[in-house]
């Protein structure tokens, strides 16, 4: 079967003071249609850059990204960001409707129903007339989830969407996202630094190396859906998998640390010299 997303030999260089920085090196990966792919990697490994490329916000320096747009009536991607990204000047309802309205895909009552549906699903319906300043951090993040789902994208791109939330809210949102996705299957690329999160949500998990990032290893997650996250966390298989990944990831985190330390001492030397 033709993959939904095919990334071939993609590298990305950034111009930085005194040279270039290579964020990605020869990344190769494929994502099947309606697959939930999680990517974990040490911070600074270029995983966000990769996601931004898929979302059309960034270009590859070399290599090739091809994404199959199967249904032109649906938008290709919708992104959910780690930072607060709901528009402060729009009400909850208008934020959720934004993706449809800004592309002139608003279809009257049908679209309004869709907005209502996802606000209900994310527990925000009561707050439809509120402005974001009146919401908590978790509610704002649920709103950006709703905003993405309302557009019914072929691919959902999530960049550590729950990283800024407290533990309890994170657990709830993971479970809610899992349920929503099981209901509205779409292709997902989900970036996270949490191995637990990756294994709970994903069909496949890819571990990335430290910068310049490339794919170290891919793991297939065998757990059946629908998944009960509490139950899953108790299973030996779950621990076995996360353990395996951690062994792999630890080397990379340590390498990233060494890089960071090297960069800092270089900088200090330059400043003092």
């Amino acid at each position: 079967m033709k993959p939904k997303i095919a990334i071939r030999n993609v590298s990305r260089f950034f111009d930085v003071k005194g040279g270039t920085f290579q964020a990605l090196r020869n990344v190769n990966l494929e994502v099947g249609a309606e697959q939930f792919l999680c990517i974990v990697g040490p911070s600074g490994c270029g995983k966000s850059t990769l996601l931004r490329m898929l979302g059309g916000l960034e270009m590859a320096s070399t290599g090739d990204i091809s994404i199959a747009h199967d249904n032109p009536a649906r938008p290709l991607t919708a992104m959910i960001f780690q930072q607060e990204s709901v528009f402060p000047w729009l009400t909850v309802e208008k934020n959720a409707a934004y993706g449809l309205q800004v592309t002139n895909n608003w279809r009257g009552a049908e679209s309004a129903e869709r907005v209502t549906y996802f606000l209900e699903k994310t527990g925000l319906l009561k707050f439809r007339d509120f402005y974001p300043y009146q919401l908590s951090g978790g509610m704002k993040q649920r709103l950006s989830v709703a905003r993405a789902f309302v557009t019914n994208p072929e691919i959902l791109l999530m960049d550590e969407p729950f990283a800024a939330l407290d533990e309890q809210n994170k657990l709830l949102l993971q479970q809610e996202l899992g349920k929503l996705w099981e209901e509205f299957r779409s292709t997902v690329v989900f970036i996270t630094h949490s191995l637990d999160e990756a294994v709970l949500l994903g069909d496949r998990v890819m571990v990335m190396s430290s910068a310049p990032g490339h794919i170290k290893q891919a793991f297939d997650i065998p757990f059946a859906r629908p998944r009960d996250f509490l139950e899953l966390r108790q299973q030996d298989d779950f621990h076995h998998l996360t353990r395996q990944m951690w062994e792999l990831l630890r080397q990379e985190v340590e390498a990233a640390r060494a890089q960071e330390a090297g960069r800092l001492s270089q900088e200090r030397a330059r400043r003092n010299g």
């Binding site: 979302g55 059309g56 916000l57 919708a78 992104m79 960001f81 607060e84 592309t103 557009t151 791109l157």
Partner: peptide, 16 residues
């Protein structure tokens, strides 16, 4: 910049 990223990702036109 994040708000422009959101709009760009959702394929808002320049004027929008």
């Amino acid at each position: 910049a994040i708000y422009f990223d959101v709009a760009r990702n959702l394929k808002a036109s320049r004027w929008k």
